[in-house]
Amino acid sequence: MSAGHDSSSMKLTLHVWRQKGPDDEGRFEIHRLNDVSQDMSFLEMLDVLNEQLTNEGREPVVFDHDCREGICGMCSLVINGQVHGPVPEITTCQLHMRKFNDGDTIYIEPFRAKAFPIIRDLATDRTAFDRIIQSGGFVSVNTGNAPDANALLVSKQNADEAMDAAACIGCGGCVAACPNAAAMLFTSAKVSQLALLPQGAPERDARVLAMVGQMDAEGFGNCTNESECQAACPKGISVTNIARLNREYLRASLVGKSQ
């Protein structure tokens, strides 16, 4: 630990959400950190907090994280009222403390949605997303030899759009940011990445019906087109995907072949 880097060392007051389990009321706990380096990531700052708590013989704060390089979608947090913090298009693990100032007070809350129950403190159960994927977010393929490259032609436009949709890391930030706790951006990205490609075509109708059905069953809200999800998304997923999901769903419902 490098103490004494005056220009890069900050004092912070943290209001951290603590909750013993899904049914606990929960409350904010106030902690002071006296030597936070501006080079730390937000999660490293929480590591420092946890070290301090452990040294004091107290329970460390539970928070989700895994890759810490912005690709796994495991980190979360609502920081000062904003999903993944104040910087657009990055995850919490990619947020650096230089975006904050010496003396700042920072509120740290978990993602809040009925479909994402709090496990403990800041960690949330986002397996609802896994169940949406399991309901149809895949293609059934015969495994065998790898097909020749370009055996299936995909236009550049579609490849690009499918790739943009596939950038979704499933963090759930869209749900957390949505005023209605809707999961439309996530579900639409997952439907779109397959609907745009020939491999996704055979199961197109069944997929969208099943995934929207599962999304509703999980208790997510109804989209009111506020676009907060797009603004909060660490991967810049566009609400154009939501329009596509609406189209896909209506098409499958009204004129689709699957029951």
């Binding site: 009222g81 509120y107 809350e109 009925k114 809707a182 809200g221 506020e226 676009s227 603004a231 909060a232």
Partner: peptide, 20 residues
């Protein structure tokens, strides 16, 4: 009503991301 229920316990501090 459904959307309120879907949120459950709300945020203590909420700052929009600027799209509303």
């Amino acid at each position: 009503r459904e959307n309120r229920e879907a949120r459950g316990k709300g945020y203590t501090l909420r700052n929009d991301h600027g799209a509303r």
